[in-house]
Write a protein that binds this DNA or RNA. Structure first.
Length: 414
RNA sequence: GCGGGUGUAGCUCAGUUGGUUAGAGCAUCGGUUUGUGGUACCGAGGGUCGCGGGUUCGAGUCCCGUCACUCGCCCCA
């Protein structure tokens, strides 16, 4: 079709949309900063192997959702589908492995070749955090508390619920996986086609299938909690106690699992029912095996990512932007003086609009359209007296103010 | 990748059982108002009816294809 349209699943962000995006980014980084997080910006593309090795060859992201290209030089590169792999790669390749614990905040575009839907684009944006090098539950608690704090600051506490689960350590997960496979294998014919496929690829996923047949079949399935070993149970308990100590409400959801291979122990999601099928707004978990799997020293890690588009859609109305001051000269001579006054006011920190053309009526109309709070009018009379007429555009009241006193007089409109 | 819905002006939408110059509101521009905006009144511009093909004397309307958007499945933030 026409080249004059954005690529499927991409959008131009402007006006109110980008204000909301920036609001999410800026408030979340401001909170993360208080928890000791510094920002990291990794490249938007990496060697394809970086994602293949970390996400696991069988995950859907790797098998069908990556934007992968060959460069002119013959390298195989991929637009990042998520943020953790790049941060983990940087952790190793930047030689940071001796500097743990490390806390990173990131924001930026991610790319997944998927069918677009409400709250799901091919280029979308995430904020996320990673905490590397802390193996104790205190890290899990802190990272989840940070997420809750950010959502609270965004005024979304009432709109989301926190669900969590333990995927146990490697030993527990292997035991549980085995139990699940044997349970579902015995009733394979009752499962949906998708889930029969999952049986070999990712049996845990059968548990949170939306298919009614799967839900029925999963009713009597063994519970993860029965297969957690003592170490895993203690760990999960400590995380829950830590959250309770901070009055963070959560719900244990035994069906909560992870699509990506590198997760173990704590998995959590903040979800909403306001976004249709895309209810997950922020999700994360512990990935103790990842760094080693990538070729670094064994290093525990935990983190989460949140979709900025999804958060933006949930956000309540933002406070109105600051209203500008409109400077309105009536003729060419006044125009020159207006230039100087405009510059002075902008230097002093005011938001000032100086129109580009039109008679006074036109300029007043424009002042009104951009929601200016006051108009500073400069005409022949004002020039002779060395003043400007300051008109309050809400009340219509106007007074003459010496040009030199404008900044002081307008102080309330900054 | 699979399934449903929808494509008419810049935006939101009407358009009868197929019928001759395709409409409205909002927005835009001009005027009433050559030093005063918002309100009001008057007027104007703006449409290959997503695209291609077919049926028909005649298609915005019916049929087929295609593209796009959208919702859901899968998966995920």
């Amino acid at each position: 079709m026409s080249q004059l349209q954005p690529i499927k699943g991409t959008h131009d962000l402007m006006f109110e949309d980008i204000r909301r995006h920036r609001h999410v980014e800026e408030t979340s980084f401001e909170i993360a900063r208080r928890y000791g997080y510094g920002e990291i910006a990794t490249p938007v593309f990496e060697f394809t192997d970086v994602f293949k090795r970390t996400l696991g060859d069988t995950s859907d992201i790797v098998t069908k959702e990556m934007f992968t290209f060959e460069t002119k030089g013959g390298d195989n590169i991929t637009l990042r589908p998520e943020g953790t792999a790049g941060v983990a790669r940087a952790f190793i390749s930047e030689g940071l492995t001796q500097q743990t614990p490390l806390k990173f905040f990131y924001r930026g575009p991610m790319f997944r070749y998927e069918r677009p839907q409400k709250g799901r684009q091919r280029q979308f944006h995430q904020i996320g955090v990673e905490l590397l090098g802390v193996a104790t539950p205190q890290a899990d608690v802190e990272v989840i508390a940070l997420a809750a704090h950010i959502l609270g600051e965004l005024k979304l506490t009432g709109a989301v619920t926190l669900e969590m689960n333990s995927l146990g350590d490697t030993e527990s997960r292997a035991a549980y996986r085995e139990a699940l496979v044997s349970f579902f294998s015995a009733r394979k014919d009752q499962l949906s086609a998708d889930s029969q496929e999952r049986l070999t690829r990712n049996p845990l996923r059968i548990l949170d299938s939306k298919d009614p047949a799967d839900k029925a079949a999963a009713a009597g399935a063994p519970l993860f909690t029965e297969y957690l070993n003592d170490a895993s149970k203690d760990f999960f308990k400590a995380v829950q106690d830590g959250l309770a100590a901070q009055n963070i409400a959560f719900k244990v959801n035994p069906a909560l699992v992870r699509g990506l291979d590198y997760y173990g122990h704590t998995a959590f999601e903040f979800t909403t029912d306001a976004l249709g099928a895309q209810g997950t707004v922020l999700a994360g978990g512990r990935y103790d095996g990842l760094i080693k799997q990538m070729g670094g020293p064994p290093t525990p890690g935990i983190g989460w990512a949140a979709g900025i588009e999804r958060l933006s859609m949930l956000l309540p109305e933002l406070a109105a932007a600051a209203r500008p001051i409109a400077v309105i000269p009536i003729g060419d001579e006044e125009g020159k003086v207006a230039l100087g006054i405009t510059a002075t006011l902008r230097q002093a920190g005011f938001t000032v609009d100086l129109g580009y053309s039109g008679n006074m009526g036109k300029r007043m109309t424009r002042a009104n359209k951009i929601k200016a709070a006051v108009a500073v009018i400069l005409g022949g009379d004002e020039m002779r007296e060395g003043v400007a007429t300051v008109r309050n555009l809400d009340s219509g009241e106007q007074v003459k103010v010496p040009q030199a006193d404008l900044a002081r007089h307008l102080a309330g409109y900054k």
